[in-house]
């Protein structure tokens, strides 16, 4: 047994535990960066696959975001002469509020069915679970935005399909899921998690919200890269800082389930 239970990460060393049915199971141990990325991919792939079957997250998020756009449209139509002055706020507010729905399900479903324990039992770094979930959440949010943007175009008659707006939306969404996935993991096993997550998340998202609305507004006013670059800088700094910090602290969350 002592040979079997070597735990040094010998890269690509093949280990065959004793077989029951004379059928050895070949596993890579250790595995390095390649194995790490494969697991990140497997977790994201698993979430997307489950979503394609159930269509729980994507459908609620898109319906909610379109509803929110319609409600904002009604709210502002009566008083606002130039829709370009409210569209930046509408775009980013809808993005923030919609994302919470998806993030809540991200770990909520795993906790409810106990499958989180199975993930934690597997020889996977906790951070790989985090990045896998982050990728899946990023995909859900971006897919939802593919519906939100046309809805805004229709209701407000403002063309927001402009390069820098889309770039800022991508950067902002990355920052959003970076912090959002971490907080979703924190709040997943807490009482009243559905209402807890937005309270935790929204105050922390303020820099992204401010930078995003400012970039969108400036681009709609016809400004160029020179005027928006400091705001793009804020978004990039936000993404990098929180990716690193989340990577560092994520291990601490599930020391104990």
């Amino acid at each position: 047994m002592s040979v079997l239970l070597q735990t040094e990460p010998n890269n690509n060393a093949l280990v065959a535990p004793p077989s029951l049915e004379n059928q050895p199971v070949q596993m890579h141990t250790g595995g390095g960066v390649g194995a790490y990325l494969r697991k990140v991919g497997a977790i994201a792939d698993k979430d997307l696959r489950a979503e394609i079957r159930a269509k729980e997250v994507f459908s609620t998020m898109t319906v909610f975001s379109v509803l929110a756009v319609v409600i904002f449209g009604m709210a502002f139509d009566l008083r606002v002469a130039f829709p370009t002055s409210v569209v930046p706020g509408v775009l980013w507010a809808v993005m923030l509020f919609t994302g919470v729905l998806g993030l809540n399900r991200s770990f909520g479903a795993e906790v409810d069915r106990g499958s989180l324990a199975a993930l934690l039992l597997a020889p996977v770094d906790r951070s790989a679970i985090y990045f896998g979930k982050l990728l899946a959440n990023l995909f859900f949010l971006l897919a939802t935005q593919c519906i939100t943007l046309p809805a805004i175009l229709v209701i407000f008659n403002v063309n927001i399909f402009q390069t820098w707006i889309l770039v800022s939306l991508l950067l902002g969404t990355v920052g959003y899921v970076t912090v959002g996935t971490l907080f979703a993991a924190l709040s997943a096993s807490v009482r009243a998690r559905e209402s807890m997550l937005p309270i935790l998340l929204l105050p922390v998202m303020l820099p992204v919200f401010m930078a995003g609305t400012k970039i969108t507004g400036l681009v709609l006013d016809g400004k160029g890269l020179n005027d928006i670059q400091r705001w793009l800088g804020i978004l990039i700094a936000y993404d990098l800082i929180f990716l690193v910090v989340a990577f560092l602290v994520f291990d601490l969350i599930w020391e104990e389930l």
Partner: peptide, 25 residues
């Protein structure tokens, strides 16, 4: 204690960024 500390740590890191963003308004 653990979750509270993690949240406080992450949330407070965002405050300087909020300050600088708001400064440019």
């Amino acid at each position: 204690a653990r979750f509270g500390s993690i949240y406080a740590l992450i949330a407070f890191l965002s405050v300087p960024l909020t300050y600088f963003s708001a400064r440019w308004f």
